[in-house]
Amino acid sequence: MAARDRFTINITCNSCGNEGEAEASENDYPFMRHPGFRFDALPEGIIVIKEDNFRAKTVLKCQCGNEISP
């Protein structure tokens, strides 16, 4: 199993101001085609609506209904 690189992402909803820190991780090998990005913990009121192997393609949704790009 590959090692995971873990980090924190500050998330803020532009619509309602809901904010918090999310814990995320991805494979720790830069030569891999798919980094295996995933959220390990999200702030209250934030959910993942589209998961992807890449952070830029992952989409979050706030409890107010606003979509957020991490």
Rank of each mutant, 00 (worst) to 15 (best):
M1T: 13
M1Y: 11
A2K: 09
A2L: 09
A3F: 12
A3D: 15
A3M: 13
R4Q: 11
R4D: 14
R4C: 09
R4P: 03
D5A: 09
D5L: 08
D5S: 12
R6K: 14
F7C: 10
T8K: 08
I9L: 02
I9G: 00
I9F: 00
N10T: 08
N10G: 10
N10H: 12
I11E: 01
I11C: 05
I11G: 05
T12P: 05
T12Y: 06
T12F: 05
C13P: 13
C13N: 03
C13G: 06
N14K: 13
N14Q: 11
N14R: 13
S15D: 13
C16S: 09
G17T: 03
G17K: 05
E19S: 15
G20S: 11
G20A: 04
G20R: 03
E21V: 14
E21G: 13
A22W: 07
A22M: 04
E23Y: 00
E23V: 11
E23D: 06
E23I: 13
A24N: 04
A24M: 00
A24C: 04
S25A: 15
E26M: 14
N27Q: 14
D28P: 06
D28M: 04
D28R: 08
Y29I: 15
Y29K: 08
Y29E: 14
P30F: 05
P30Q: 03
F31Q: 11
M32R: 14
M32Y: 15
M32I: 15
R33I: 13
R33Q: 15
R33C: 11
H34M: 09
P35D: 10
P35F: 09
G36E: 07
G36D: 02
G36Y: 02
G36N: 04
G36F: 06
F37P: 00
F37L: 00
R38E: 15
R38W: 02
R38C: 14
R38T: 10
F39H: 02
F39C: 01
D40H: 06
D40T: 15
D40K: 07
A41V: 10
L42Y: 05
L42C: 11
P43H: 02
E44M: 00
G45C: 01
G45A: 01
I46W: 02
I46H: 00
I47H: 02
V48N: 04
V48G: 08
K50Y: 10
K50F: 03
K50Q: 11
K50W: 05
K50P: 06
E51A: 10
E51Q: 10
E51V: 07
E51F: 08
D52M: 02
D52L: 00
D52A: 08
N53Q: 09
N53E: 13
N53A: 10
F54P: 01
F54S: 00
R55L: 07
A56R: 10
A56V: 03
A56P: 00
T58N: 02
T58A: 03
T58Y: 01
V59Q: 00
L60A: 07
K61C: 07
K61T: 05
K61A: 11
C62T: 03
Q63V: 07
Q63K: 09
Q63D: 10
C64L: 07
C64M: 06
G65W: 09
G65K: 04
N66E: 15
N66F: 11
N66W: 10
N66D: 13
E67F: 07
E67R: 12
E67C: 11
I68Y: 02
I68S: 07
I68T: 08
S69M: 02
S69G: 01
P70M: 01
P70A: 04
P70C: 05
